[in-house]
């Protein structure tokens, strides 16, 4: 028999539990990426070359090396330096760093798109650099790039199976274990694929929704008056 429904129902609860881990890793990893990305983008724009050049180098380095290697590095090599991390933590950090580097480019585009006049008005009003970023620049830089950030959220989500390489019990790892126990791989792997497909489609639809409501409010802040 090619497809066994009984087996499907049997493994469903285990897979659903594992999907929670996948979603957790996605959300935590992306939260980290969103914050790190913004920090990297701002450091990269620093007027001091001592800050901007090394930051650019780190971003380039992270973007140019495979995520899998970064995951291995954090999980297997950090302990050599006395930093032992649980697999899930190591995985979330690797996802956050890797996608943080990508997000920083998105943020940078957003920051650079804020007209120079906004910086000048902030200087003329004597706002500190911190308040200028927090209240003037970031609120204008981020809304237009939310759709681009959303695409990275979906991309990050689809790369969480890499965490199976360090035995995080997310969907892929769980499917592999189920398969090796029963010697049936068709159902678990198909179900996992289906899960990713559905979640990605839902997320993309959600992002498009956010995008169009953003476009509306960006064109007309404050609604109709």
């Amino acid at each position: 028999m090619f497809w066994d429904w009984n087996y499907v129902w049997e493994i469903m609860p285990t897979l659903l539990r594992a999907s929670v881990v996948t979603i957790e890793a996605t959300l935590l990893g992306f939260a980290l990426a969103a914050v790190l990305g913004l920090v990297m983008a701002i450091l990269r724009m620093s007027k001091s070359q001592w800050i901007s050049v090394p930051t650019a180098a780190v971003i380039e380095f992270i973007r140019s090396t495979p995520l899998l290697i970064q995951i291995f590095f954090i999980f297997f090599v950090f302990p050599e330096f006395g930093l032992v991390l649980p697999a899930m933590t190591a995985g979330v950090i690797a996802l956050g760093l890797h996608y943080g580097a990508y997000c920083s480019e998105v943020y940078r585009a957003g920051l650079e798109n804020v007209p120079r006049g906004q910086w000048e008005a902030s200087t003329a009003l004597n706002l500190s650099p911190y308040i200028t970023f927090r209240d003037i620049i970031i609120p204008q830089a981020i809304p237009p790039v939310i759709p681009a950030l959303g695409n990275y959220l979906v991309a990050l989500f689809k790369e969480t199976p890499l965490l199976s390489a360090i035995a995080v019990l997310e969907l892929m790892q769980t499917a592999k274990i189920l398969g090796s126990e029963s010697f049936r791989y068709v159902e678990p792997i198909t179900l996992v694929g289906g899960f990713f497909l559905i979640m990605s489609l839902v997320a993309s639809m959600f992002i498009r929704q956010v995008e169009s409501s953003l476009n509306r409010s960006l064109r007309n802040p404050g609604g109709d008056k």
């Binding site: 006049g117 906004q118 000048e120 008005a121 003037i136 609120p139 204008q140 802040p221």
Partner: peptide, 10 residues
Amino acid sequence: VFQHFNLFPH
């Protein structure tokens, strides 16, 4: 005061 106002649009 600037030629192009430079108000904070948000």
